[in-house]
Amino acid sequence: MALPATADAADAILRVEHLCKYYPVSRGLFQRRQLLLHAVDNVSFEVKRGEVLGLVGESGCGKTTTGRLIARLTFPTTGRIFVDNADVSKIQGADMAEFRKKIQMIFQDPYESLDPRMTIFDIVAEPLNVNGMGNLEEREQRVAEMLSLVGISPPSAFLFRFPHELSGGQRQRVAIARALVMNPTFVVADEPTSMLDVSIRTGIMKLLAQLREDLGISYLYITHDLAVARYLCDRIAVMYLGKIVEVAEAEEIIKEPLHPYTRALISAVPVPDPAVKRPVPTIKGGVSKPINPPRRCRFYERCPVAKSTCAEQDHPAPREVSGGHFAACHQL
């Protein structure tokens, strides 16, 4: 499988090569074959320094698993992840602390990602605390600094409150402050706005964009919302059943989607005009489960342009169609 976009390897803060994560599915008493759920299946991509890569796909397509693999919350079945050209799976001991400082994660649900028994100060200072960074005074200063950076002000009014005293948007801001307190260079943002009210969502998105400008952080931005991805991301990768089916610049993928799945996704974005006639849905059926998937294009059952060759060959490798635009489809 060709590696998408390897213009300059040294340029990449994150490089993922042939990443696979298979989960064993508990089998019945009389089942012989071990069933594997292919959550992430042979995925390769890279994120350049200072870049925001959007990972878009529907529920269960493996985008969160990809994020968790990168943050080392779970370990890949096969494949490798490089951060700053260092193989993540080989990191040990003191380098591990360095790795944790470099890569942080923002979680989806701000109601669940903050320990309800900790004060805001303890939550934001925890990364400093466990990594032994600074003394108490320095930590306090740093936490206050981060809180005002994410728009929690005045910080002193919030330091000794508990998460339940904060609104959803404030909680997510606290979670962002916590993720950024160690000055990471790369942040995995796992649908940070999907659990928030629409009214608050824009504020958080603007904050993330602002922080990227100010601190030069790269993001892997996981979302199911193409509009959010378009707003925040430089490039977008579309995932389907554990596979990346298309990668391109954000505007290009929205305007000229190549893969039939991406096209269907984009046609599903609502148009704010009641006179617009909706196109007939181009794909049929629902997402199948990626449990021991047959050796053919993963999108075959639902694809409007599928031909018999799509069923005969394995899932296609992404192919560069035009400059920096990769798509995985036999029919292109």
Binding site: M96, A97, R100, F107, E126, R178
Partner: peptide, 24 residues
């Protein structure tokens, strides 16, 4: 998720048990 968050922050198993699981 806050256990995952603690792990991403670099917390050891001991830290996670002591600071997060036991208080809860």
């Amino acid at each position: 998720p806050y256990i995952d968050a603690a792990r991403v922050a670099g917390g050891s198993s001991f830290h996670i048990i002591r600071a997060h699981i036991i208080p809860n």
